[in-house]
Design a protein around this nucleic acid. Structure first.
Lengths: 128, 128
DNA sequence: TTAAAGCATACTAAATTAGTAGGATATAAA
DNA sequence: TTTATATCCTACTAATTTAGTATGCTTTAA
């Protein structure tokens, strides 16, 4: 089981913005500090902007700010946006986690725990 | 975050064997019952054999049996073998989850929870 | 002796991931 | 009002991983 670098990059960038909240910071600075390709990061943060995690300001002296306070944004939100669903599914949509499928219990239980864990961690918790 | 079908196939196959434990079952039967490519499954179960989850009996009337009782095999063992490590790491091995890396807390915490959950589920729990 | 099983290895096709490239658009400051 | 600096948008590509095939060898119970 893996997480993509996308989730990791996204989280790191948001933690970075949380650290300077409520100041603006531009892609160039974030990418240098976090050692992530600027162009790639630009796209990732774009997705987080669509989903209202960050706000952007265009033009000179522009950049990004968290759309909410660090205490009001969870790791789960960010990771779910970056990585897609956190609930593993049985293959080919044939199994829709029916009661008759014994092993589906494992994925359901696990999905619950993962959500519980990640939605319980706020950016505010990570910057102390 | 995703699990591969490999982990799912492996788990399903082991649950299947748990259901008929301690009887032998051959690849052909398992693959038909679980609707998984026989040749692919053969390889997957091969890995589980190397790691002592199942025992095999070659030759006519051969097949596979769980190497231990269903109560003594956990979902975590199987999934870890099939899927590799369950602990997500920071990128490029540059970050080794240091205390200075704020976001690494998330992956460490999550890894713990995943392990706790999956190692807490035994095959025996799944076949009732 | 032989048919039925697992064992081993190499190959391939499809999907996903991780980026690049190039420009269009917006805007604050000079 | 011009210009530099930033985000925004879309298409392309390279690398890796996943999922699955193919082929043949080895073992062994009947």
């Amino acid at each position: 089981m893996k997480f993509s670098t996308k989730a990791e990059y996204g989280l790191r960038a948001m933690v970075n913005l949380a650290s300077c909240f409520p100041e603006l910071k531009n892609i160039k600075s974030i990418s240098q500090e976090e050692k992530i390709s600027a162009k790639y990061l630009e796209r990732l943060i774009g997705e987080l902007r669509e989903r209202k995690i960050v706000k952007s300001l265009k033009g000179k002296n522009g950049g990004y700010v968290l759309a909410r306070k660090p205490e009001q944004i969870t790791a789960g939100e960010i990771i779910e946006i970056m990585d897609g669903s956190m609930v593993p599914k049985c293959y080919g949509n044939q199994c829709t986690h029916m009661k008759t499928c014994a092993s589906s219990f494992v994925w359901i239980k696990l999905g619950e725990q993962i959500r519980k864990t990640l939605y319980g961690i706020k950016l505010g918790d990570l910057i102390k």
